[in-house]
Design a protein around this nucleic acid. Sequence first.
DNA 1: CGAAAGGTTGACCAAGATCAAAGTGAGTGG
DNA 2: CCACTCACTTTGATCTTGGTCAACCTTTCG
Lengths: 234, 234
Amino acid sequence: MPGPQLPDDVFLGAFANAPARELAPGQVLIAAGAPADEVFNILSGMLMMSRTGSDGRRQVLSFLFRDNFIGLTTADRYYFTVQAVTPALVACIPRADFEARLARVPEAERAFLNMTFRVLEDLLDTIYSLGQRTALERLAVFLVFLRHARRLADGPADDGDPASNEVSLPMTREDIADYVGLQKETVSRSFGQLERRGLIRRLDSHRIRILDLPRLRELAGVVDFAASARLPPR
Amino acid sequence: MPGPQLPDDVFLGAFANAPARELAPGQVLIAAGAPADEVFNILSGMLMMSRTGSDGRRQVLSFLFRDNFIGLTTADRYYFTVQAVTPALVACIPRADFEARLARVPEAERAFLNMTFRVLEDLLDTIYSLGQRTALERLAVFLVFLRHARRLADGPADDGDPASNEVSLPMTREDIADYVGLQKETVSRSFGQLERRGLIRRLDSHRIRILDLPRLRELAGVVDFAASARLPPR
DNA sequence: CGAAAGGTTGACCAAGATCAAAGTGAGTGG
DNA sequence: CCACTCACTTTGATCTTGGTCAACCTTTCG
């Protein structure tokens, strides 16, 4: 039962009666290089933020969910791309309005700063993963993260419900690969290995069930996450 | 000739007459797990921020220089370690004082937010590197970054001066390895390869000279950096 | 001067990438 | 409604990059 706006999300008030934009899967919300003059808040759906180098290599920087803020940049042009993974609804306001609001409402600015810090800490986790973890571990991290993000966005499901351990993967294997710094074939094989080890079951190619969450978490090394310091104990 | 405090560094004013702490190489400023009740600003020297997983794997998250701020966290305990690489001087103030100042001085908070965003964008560059680039490319990125950071911290040297293309590497090969997500042997070999290709010359194990900056930059793919949008054109 | 830590180099190994082929499924047009 | 197509996924075979293990070298420091 999500109550009134959480204190840390005060800045989202800026989107109170902002116009919403509807996005179809794959549709681009922000194209790299476009002038950065709007900011967004996700109302529903999953989006994906990525950067593609001049030689075509692409890194997916993050997957985004409800109440995630988009439009972060110090430059005057976006240097990344944001596109929908599932059908999505996004509230848009001019960047100038948003900044004016931050300047006018100190609590909003403070809340925004806090949010930015949380994002930053999540990025440090990602860096640790990419730098130190193996393919299998990165996949485990990814699944644990996705499950967590979904529960934040959709509200925590009843843990008794077996569906609470189902994770939907609306993105392609290649999207996943570019997120965890692997090739799509390796992602496929690693899912196979997680299945053979009895940690997950592949229901279909876009849906898996976590069979052994504790062992998956252990493999992911969740204990070592900065972000998990923000999770409820146990 | 660094003039008066740059606008974006207004928040550093908080350190105006803060006590300084002197650090010897290797000395720990922040130990992971310690209560996060101080924040720091580097006056001189090079520090290093890292995280070590429960299984001993370590990721160096960043190297830090003059005017870099340290103490970033939303939690009440640090989840990373910061230690000196070279002898260093660090200004310290209680976190509460710093936060009080941010709350009191809107421009300081705004400047701090901007700084945080720049850090965040640099982390996105790092993620791209770790996820997509090869060993050799990561080393190239590292060298270009170190040269740049030095010039920011020490003031840009005269470009005619050959010393302007010397880069000192006070950290160990293992520190570098843990920063770029490789093993120390691979770092050694990659330096060898950069030398054989004529891009750098190893003067001694803690000092290299860049012989061909344009080609090194090209290998590093600097064009694809978010951070380079903040650099002077050309 | 000797020990210890850090660095380089070589030989070998393995995780993951690449190349190739075949299976699956959703959407489209007949 | 069915069949075809095309995109995505999986799996297999092979190759390559970077990791591991080990020896040797260099520098620093006690």
